[in-house]
Design a protein around this nucleic acid. Sequence first.
DNA 1: ATTGGGATTAGCT
DNA 2: GCTAATCCCAATG
Length: 200
Amino acid sequence: MDDVFQWILRLDALEAAPLILGLELRAGRCSGRIVEVEAYREDDPASHCFRGRTPRNAPMFLCGGHLYVYRSYGVHWCLNLVTGKEGEGQALLIRALEPTEGQAIMRQRRGQVPERRLCAGPGNLCRALGIDGSFSGERLGRRVHLCGVPGAAESVAQGPRIGITQGRDRPWRFYLEQSAYLSRPGIAAKPVTSPHARDT
DNA sequence: ATTGGGATTAGCT
DNA sequence: GCTAATCCCAATG
């Protein structure tokens, strides 16, 4: 079953993104459904890989299925699932989860916040799941796991990425349109798959 | 050796 | 809407 995820994560980030949405991400006793991701690639001015390999971004150049965790603004940790083949330098930034298990522990780490804010935002979800820089470069399946049925998510939407100054023209943020657990509401979304598209 | 700029967030105006 | 918190990297002298 894990082979399915390995296969998906070796696809290009843009192909993998809609398949990853809806899967459950678990770390320790906490888990949540992935409702929002963003794709970053080497040919992409917004990506940490844009100017080649450095000690920080080295895990992004491993093959799909590894983790890349970086420190944001010197304050927060952010989790990526590396995609593609070794040397390509691409990943999916996990931006929001719908908490499904371990909410009590999450709240202990995050403080008294409403359920829909527990894992909303890349920094917040790492805090909630206890993910830090020591996870970077690690293989999926050690301390972080995926489970669920890939590609089964209801209406996936696509829009501009958040918080970047370069590469704004690339609509590489993917999210579950009806989710109440997004880091921010969808902006000028265009649907990728609709609930009825799969029926045909 | 120093400097400027982020794939962010909470709290305040 | 604005700002501070504060670390890593890249570009520059």
